[in-house]
């Protein structure tokens, strides 16, 4: 009895701390979303770009790239989803570098708020907008002929995986944004390396058509694992001829990659935040 009575008292300051972290994170997330929606860039990013990608890829490449025995439009859609989730790097890096550039990070640091609030708030708000983007893309996908064949459970698993991947990439974006500290540079530094990474995967074409060395790279590319897992969960046809472990077990591989990326980049981003902010 005594132990039960004393422990809440001892825990109180700690849980108050957690409550503060949560509250500060939500305040920052609120201001990112609230302010972001007023910026035309964000609106284009959130509403125009996903529609454009789906329609463009479906109609321009959809008919041009024949993949044997596969409905290419269905094959393509998971690739486009994953590409767009990977682009989460951009809003995170631009957002944080902009805050740094404009002195807001300094201001936040002079307030008695949780130190993790600024980055966590960024990640939460960008994750929310990636969720909206994903929904818009899926609706567009359905309109152009994409279908889910595996039922609701795996479908929700697929959506969860896409968001988990976006979450992981947001930490990469946070690190880039804080390292660069200039929104213009961050905008390109955030994305430029992503294109080769995405194209060197199974997102748009089967790796079997690539030269052997490139093919191996593509098979072990995290993007490929996520895309393959997406196809599997959504029940979209894909012919996996590769023996590489991630291609044989795409869902566990995809989860592992997401966890690995987060575990590596989240602490790096937080460390960079502390260092960058005290320059």
């Amino acid at each position: 009895m005594t132990a039960v009575q004393t422990s809440p008292g001892e825990l109180a300051p700690k849980s108050a701390g957690l409550k503060q972290v949560f509250q500060d994170t939500m305040v920052i997330a609120w201001r990112n979303i609230r302010g972001g929606l007023r910026v035309p860039d964000t609106q284009i990013y959130m509403f125009i770009q996903p529609i454009m990608f789906v329609v463009l890829f479906a109609y321009v490449f959809g008919g041009a790239i024949p993949v044997q025995g596969v409905n290419y439009r269905e094959y393509l859609m998971a690739g486009i989803f994953v590409q767009t989730m990977a682009f989460a790097v951009a809003p995170a890096s631009v957002g944080l570098s902009d805050d740094m550039h404009k002195g807001l990070i300094d201001r936040f640091r002079s307030l008695p708020m949780a130190r993790s609030g600024v980055i966590a708030g960024r990640v939460i708000s960008d994750l929310a907008s990636q969720f909206v983007v994903l929904i818009i893309m899926m609706i567009c996908g359905v309109i152009v002929g994409w279908r889910v064949h595996n039922g609701i459970g795996p479908f929700l698993g697929g959506v969860g995986l896409m968001l988990l991947f976006a979450f992981a990439m947001l930490w990469v974006g946070a690190l880039i944004g804080l390292a660069v500290g200039n929104p213009q540079v961050a905008a390109s530094a955030g994305l430029i390396w992503l294109f080769p990474v995405i194209f060197l995967s199974n997102a748009f074409v089967p790796p079997e058509t690539m030269p052997t060395v490139v093919q191996t790279m593509a098979e072990w590319n995290p993007i490929s694992a996520i895309v393959a897992a997406g196809r599997e969960l959504f029940g979209n046809e894909s012919i996996i001829v590769s023996d590489a472990w991630p291609m044989q077990h795409p869902v566990p591989a995809a989860l592992l990659w997401c966890v690995l990326i987060t575990v590596v980049f989240a602490p790096l981003a937080v460390r960079k935040y502390k260092a960058a902010a005290s320059k």
Partner: peptide, 21 residues
Amino acid sequence: AAVDENLTGRENLWMFGRLYQ
């Protein structure tokens, strides 16, 4: 001046108030 330029004046001050707990 370090204020969030996308937020209104009122929203900025509310945010700072919240972050002051």
